[in-house]
Simulated scan of single mutants.
Amino acid sequence: MEALVTEWLPWRTAMERALYGERGFYRRGERPAEHFRTSVHASSRFAAAVARLLADVDAALDHPSRLDLVDVGAGSGALLTNVLACITPELRSRLAPTAVEIAPRPPGLPADLSWRPDIPRSFTGLAIANEWLDNVPLDVVEQTPDGVRTVLVDPSSGAERPGPEPSADDRAWLDRWWPLTEAGDRAEVGRPRCAAWGAVLRRLDRGLAIAVDYAHARGSRPPYGTLTGYRDGATVPAVPDGSCDVTAHVALDACAVEGERAGATATVLTTQRSALRSLGLTGARPPLDLAHRDPRAYVAALCHAGEDAELTDPNGLGGFGWLAQSKHIPLPVTLTTPPH
Rank of each mutant, 00 (worst) to 15 (best):
C86M: 12
C86S: 14
T88G: 13
E90N: 07
E90H: 11
L91P: 11
S93C: 07
R94Y: 09
R94T: 06
A96K: 11
P97N: 12
T98H: 10
A99K: 10
A103S: 15
A103C: 09
A103E: 09
P104G: 13
P104C: 10
P107H: 13
P107V: 15
G108R: 05
G108A: 07
L109V: 12
P110F: 13
A111D: 14
L113W: 09
L113Q: 09
S114V: 15
R116L: 08
R116P: 05
P117I: 03
P117T: 05
P117L: 07
D118F: 05
D118W: 11
D118T: 15
I119H: 10
P120C: 14
R121W: 12
S122A: 15
T124A: 14
T124Y: 07
T124P: 09
A127K: 05
A127V: 10
A127I: 09
E131P: 07
E131N: 04
E131W: 06
E131T: 05
W132F: 15
W132P: 05
L133W: 00
L133C: 03
L138K: 02
L138D: 03
L138E: 00
V140T: 08
V140M: 13
V141L: 03
V141R: 01
E142Q: 15
E142R: 14
E142P: 03
E142S: 07
Q143S: 08
Q143G: 04
Q143V: 04
T144W: 03
G147S: 07
V148H: 01
R149C: 12
R149Y: 00
R149K: 11
T150N: 01
T150Q: 01
L152K: 06
V153C: 08
P155K: 05
P155R: 02
S156G: 12
S156R: 15
S156T: 15
S157V: 08
A159S: 14
A159Q: 14
E160A: 06
P164T: 08
E165D: 12
P166E: 07
P166V: 04
S167N: 06
A168T: 13
A168P: 07
A168F: 12
D169V: 07
D169S: 15
D169E: 15
R171L: 03
A172M: 04
W173G: 04
W173Q: 00
D175L: 01
D175I: 05
R176H: 00
W177M: 06
W177H: 05
W177F: 13
W178T: 02
W178K: 01
L180H: 04
T181F: 02
T181N: 08
E182F: 07
A183L: 11
D185E: 15
E188H: 01
E188G: 02
E188I: 03
G190Y: 02
G190C: 05
G190H: 00
G190D: 02
P192C: 10
P192A: 09
C194M: 14
A196N: 02
W197K: 03
A199Y: 01
A199K: 13
A199G: 10
L201Q: 05
L201D: 01
R202D: 09
R203L: 08
R203C: 13
L204E: 04
L204Q: 04
D205R: 11
